[in-house]
Design a binder for these strands. Sequence first.
DNA 1: GCCAACGTTGGC
DNA 2: GCCAACGTTGGC
Length: 136
Amino acid sequence: MNYWLVKSEPYVYSYSDLVRDKQTFWDGVRNYAARNNLRAMKKGDQVFFYHSNEGLAIVGIAKVAKEAYPDPTAEGDTWSVVDLKPVRKLKNPVTLDRIKAEKSLAAMELVVNSRLSVQKVGEKEWNTILKIAEEG
DNA sequence: GCCAACGTTGGC
DNA sequence: GCCAACGTTGGC
């Protein structure tokens, strides 16, 4: 089981949109590093859902419902999508500020390379964030 | 294959 | 709205 993080601007597609839709395909990735991460996702992998631009926080958890297949919104098979399903909303959103304040999370790609829109999350990082979400 | 120019992302 | 960081493009 691997852990990931995807980013979305909430006014484009928010976590509550995912909850409403029950399932979505994660389209629009046009960055090779991000695409490679999409392709490495396995069914059942857990995914943090991060709101960029507005909110600036991890707000919920999704899981991979279907592994990578060609992006229906792109020509050819250069770009990929996966299907995501909502799992649960975090009790408390974990903000970027909070993550930056946490020493053990200093190496997170979210902090180091904020522009990558699909990131891998380490198991320890995952658990730390879950803990913060519980404790508020 | 290098690198300057340009476009995009995303935090502030 | 600005700008830094980074990825991509295209001329050479």
